[in-house]
């Protein structure tokens, strides 16, 4: 799928949107000569507001999008890249959403992205302290037939409250992989990358290597 030509693409088309005249000194994000590989595997980070999607995005891509301690910090989709195995992967951070049925405009941004772009992997990030409240969205993602991976984030805070979660039965019941992370301090990111690898693995690449 050609990401720069599809109409409902998640990010602004850099070739079409010229910066306004008073932005002449602003650096172009992507130089003209640099072309994104056409068919990069894509993974999306979705979940309810304030569960640490952006923190996980930063941990995965090594870039920086604003992270705060209140719901609604992210209102637009940001896109970054990371290398998993030998594969360059495009990672997308989304505004928080409570359900696939959007109420506010920022929720609609996230839903429309899932509706328009085929993802190799959808990572549902949840706050481990509030698992029960977050699972309905997991159900909806699974129902939608998306390749879902569940990440229990903020494990440190859950542990502090003496909340223990058995991941194996949870994974078995949901039929998807379940991992634990503390995105703010980069804990569990390596394991996460290993798991992602099996979703974005392209045989041609590693065969030539």
């Amino acid at each position: 799928m050609n990401c720069h030509q599809c109409r409902h693409t998640c990010h602004p088309n850099p070739s079409k949107r010229r910066p306004p005249w008073w932005r002449w000194s602003r650096k172009q994000k992507l130089p003209r000569s640099f072309h994104l590989p056409q068919a990069l595997p894509k993974i999306a980070l979705v979940g309810m507001p304030n569960v640490g999607k952006s923190a996980l995005f930063n941990a995965l891509t090594g870039s920086y999008v604003t992270v705060s301690n209140y719901p609604g910090t992210t209102v637009e989709v940001s896109q970054g890249q990371t290398v998993i195995g030998e594969q360059v992967v495009s990672v997308v951070d989304t505004p928080g959403m409570y359900s696939l049925l959007p109420i506010t405009e920022e929720e609609k941004v996230a839903r429309d992205l899932l509706l328009s772009t085929a993802m190799n992997l959808v990572i549902h990030v949840v706050d481990a302290k509030n698992l029960g409240r977050m699972l309905p969205l997991t159900f909806q993602l699974i129902e939608a037939g998306l390749p879902v991976l569940l990440v229990l984030n903020m494990m440190d805070e859950a542990r502090h409250l003496q909340i223990h979660i058995q991941t194996e039965p949870l994974a078995a019941e949901l039929g998807i992989p379940v991992l634990r992370t503390i995105a703010a301090t980069n804990v569990g990111i390596r394991e996460l990358k290993t798991t992602i690898a099996s979703y974005v693995y392209t045989p041609q690449l590693s065969a030539t290597y």
């Binding site: 698992l131 699972l135 159900f139 909340i163 223990h164 979660i165």
Partner: peptide, 12 residues
């Protein structure tokens, strides 16, 4: 369903 699942895997 979420509550049932949570109860079966989570202890607090």
């Amino acid at each position: 369903t979420a509550r049932q699942l949570e109860q079966s895997v989570l202890s607090e």
